[in-house]
């Protein structure tokens, strides 16, 4: 009996010793490849399970709308009439008859270009100010009350002031985008900077990062998830603001297109334009979320 116990002990000892030096080797087991149907069947079922509910609901909404607006004298067109009325507008988004008589693509592209400029400026200035407010208690105490008041001002309320300042429609529209989307960027960035864990600061202190290195190697990467939360809110707000601003400043742009369509009683065009605006806004949000996901290596929620 004792010999067995000893042998067992010895075995454990050598095993523990071996384990201390080598990690267990990973042995790859041969994978049985299931037939094609077996592999793609569940995937298709999953896809159908995801796509079916929104399609069914959409169909139901269209049917109810059709039924409600089908009778003669109804003020809004049913989907079938929208489709026939606005058919030219839908099938040819690239026509350009000069002036503001252009296809949907050109209007949306113009609006997007304004958002791109205004939002990019807001992102740059917003992140810089956010880092400042997050890092300096003095700057936070000085600037935060001003930000909290300014951010509640509706986008369009800025338009007359910016027209007075810029004396031109284009920069005024861009300024409205800028001033609308900057607040969530500033606020989220500053929260992110303030929430950098003490652990990261300790690590940086031990390896003696300079403030410059700390900013690039710790502050920015640690704040990325917060920054992108701010950017997502910001891009949504700027898309909301541009449509309203364009209604007032006129010219090419999806906002004024809607206003123009209303003035010429092209209700079907308005409805199609609204669908486009919704889709573009959705895509903008997804785009920023995807960008954040890539930049933060999957640590920010999408």
């Amino acid at each position: 009996m004792p010999s067995i116990v000893q042998a067992l002990k010895h075995k454990q000892a050598t095993e523990a010793e071996a384990g201390a030096i080598h990690e267990a080797e990973v042995v790859a087991l041969p994978v049985r490849r299931p037939p094609l149907v077996e592999r793609f069947g569940p995937m298709l079922a999953d896809l159908a399970g995801r796509l079916a509910p929104p399609l069914i609901v959409l169909t139901l909404v269209l049917v109810v709308w059709e039924l409600l607006c089908a009778q003669a004298g109804s003020r809004l067109p049913p989907p079938s009439k929208v489709l026939t009325d606005a058919w030219d507008f839908i099938v040819d988004p690239f026509y350009d008859n000069g002036g503001i008589d252009k296809g949907a693509f050109w209007h949306i592209a113009k609006s997007l270009s304004r958002v791109a400029i205004g939002f990019t400026l807001a992102a740059i200035v917003g992140i810089a100010l956010g880092v400042l407010v997050g890092q300096s208690t003095w700057a936070m105490r000085g600037l935060d009350p001003i930000f909290q008041v300014l951010r509640t001002i509706p986008p369009l309320a800025w338009l007359p002031l910016s027209l007075a300042g810029f004396r031109d429609a284009q920069p005024s529209a861009i300024f409205v985008i800028f001033i609308t989307s900057i607040w969530p960027v500033i606020i989220n960035t500053s929260v992110g900077v303030r929430n950098i864990p003490q652990d990261y600061r300790n690590v940086a202190a031990v390896i003696r990062l300079s403030w410059y290195e700390f900013f690039w190697k710790i502050t920015l990467p640690a704040t990325v998830p917060y920054i992108f939360t701010g950017l997502r809110i910001g891009v949504g707000l700027s898309w909301l603001a541009i449509v309203a601003a364009e209604m007032l400043i006129g010219g090419v742009g999806i906002g004024f297109f809607i206003w123009d369509a209303w003035n010429s009683s092209r209700i079907s065009d308005i409805i199609v334009a609204l669908v486009y605006i919704g889709l573009v806004g959705f895509l903008l949000d997804r785009l920023i979320a995807a960008l954040g996901h890539v930049v933060s290596h999957g640590t920010s929620a999408s």
Binding site: D199, Y200, V203, A205, V206, I207, I218, P221
Partner: peptide, 28 residues
């Protein structure tokens, strides 16, 4: 003052989540 001549192994590891295993050592 803190310094690399007194390196610390922290209780909660304190790795930087945006860097790889290699990157976390490389930065130091």
């Amino acid at each position: 003052a803190p310094g690399p001549d007194r390196a610390i192994v922290f209780q909660n590891h304190s790795l930087l989540p945006w860097l790889t295993v290699y990157g976390n050592v490389r930065i130091a």
